[in-house]
């Protein structure tokens, strides 16, 4: 039995109200949407807020809309809704695969797109009860001073573990953030999902306290990209990724024009592979090309012992999963 710590409760009905509550209680709030990450973390005393701000009442954050400017996905859209939406299924199969690979049916019914993006990083030494963590003397992400993964390091390298975020990045999607200034004026800005994440496992995104994620926006230019997602995990359900690969390709197997590959569940932020266009642009997909892309991935990706599975094996799996995801996106046998 894992109890929750005591907290006060707010259930704002609009984005403006939510920002006002956050501003009225600076440094004391934890935002909760579906609660599938926040609640276990509260039970483990990884978050110790004075107040929970539950977003469930904000109708504006629901719904998926497809328009000329692209696709808008509200922060409160559940992963089940995302994975079953006909327009998303038609145009962005990589998003569907990723969302459908999160956890379990019940958790996808509860978990939201906003919460998935803001998912706390994960680590063997962090996602544990207070008792467990105390026995080890804690770690620098929470309550301690030392990292058990990279003991000589000064930064937390806990793993970015969202399944959908790598696909958003491969698609060039943006995230809309709402904030409130000292005078109470509310404003919204959009930044690329790629720029949302930073390489610090303690807090791996650019959200400032008091800010909210309101939407994900997939630009019109992303239509026509072929997308796919591959996830390595111990069991075929429930488990977080120990390696994840998202691919977006422009062109087809006979002629690749552009290729984006995002690899995650390694460090604190997803990694977009560099230098791929020089290898693939204008070429057909074949075994040699796949091998070359896999080799780039192997060189650029470095799994750590932040998740409880063999690091060398996960490193060996990087090119395997990149090659499979590329073949999936192009619709050719892996």
């Amino acid at each position: 039995m894992l109890t929750l710590p005591a907290f006060a409760w707010s259930r704002p009905q609009s984005v403006e109200d939510a920002l006002a509550v956050l501003a009225a209680h600076p440094g004391e709030c934890l935002i909760v949407a579906g609660g599938t990450d926040a609640v276990p973390n509260l039970k483990h005393r990884l978050h110790e807020p004075r107040r929970l701000v539950h977003l469930g009442g904000i109708g504006e954050l629901r719904g998926i809309r497809a328009g000329d400017a692209g696709l808008e996905v509200g922060a409160l859209v559940t992963l089940t809704e995302l994975a079953s939406h006909p327009h998303v299924r038609e145009h962005f199969p990589g998003v569907v695969t990723a969302a459908a690979h999160v956890a379990s049916p019940q958790i996808r019914n509860m978990g939201t797109v906003g919460g998935n993006l803001c998912l706390d990083t994960r680590c063997t030494y962090y996602n544990q009860t207070f008792f467990w963590r105390e026995a080890l003397g804690f770690c620098l992400k929470k309550d301690g001073t030392r990292c058990h993964v990279v003991p000589q390091g000064k930064r937390c390298v806990a793993a970015h573990s969202s399944d959908v975020a790598p696909v958003w990045i491969a698609l060039g999607a943006e995230v809309e953030i709402a904030s409130r200034d000292a005078d109470g004026a509310v404003s919204r800005r959009s930044i690329p999902v790629e720029a949302f994440f930073v390489g610090d496992g303690v807090h791996n995104n650019v959200l400032a306290p008091g800010e909210l994620v309101t939407r994900v926006l997939v630009p019109g230019a992303a239509y026509g990209l072929r997308t796919s997602y591959r996830k390595l995990r111990p069991r075929a359900a429930i488990d977080f990724p120990m390696l994840s690969v998202a691919v977006a390709v422009r062109g087809d197997a006979a002629r690749i024009e552009e290729l984006r590959v995002v690899v995650s569940a390694l460090g604190a932020k997803p990694r977009t592979l560099g230098g791929l266009d020089a290898i693939v642009a204008g070429r057909a997909h074949d075994a040699a090309l796949a091998e070359a892309v896999g080799a780039v991935a192997h060189k650029q990706c470095h799994p750590l012992s932040n998740v409880p599975y063999d690091t060398d094996w996960r490193h060996d799996m990087v090119p395997v999963f990149v090659k499979r995801a590329l073949a999936d996106a192009l619709g050719v046998p892996a």
Partner: peptide, 21 residues
């Protein structure tokens, strides 16, 4: 999943759901 209930007909984990929600 031992705590699964339906909330408005949808399978939900009651151990991760805040009652006030």
């Amino acid at each position: 999943g031992a705590c699964t209930v339906l909330v408005d007909g949808v399978p939900t984990l009651s151990c991760l759901t805040l009652a006030l929600a």
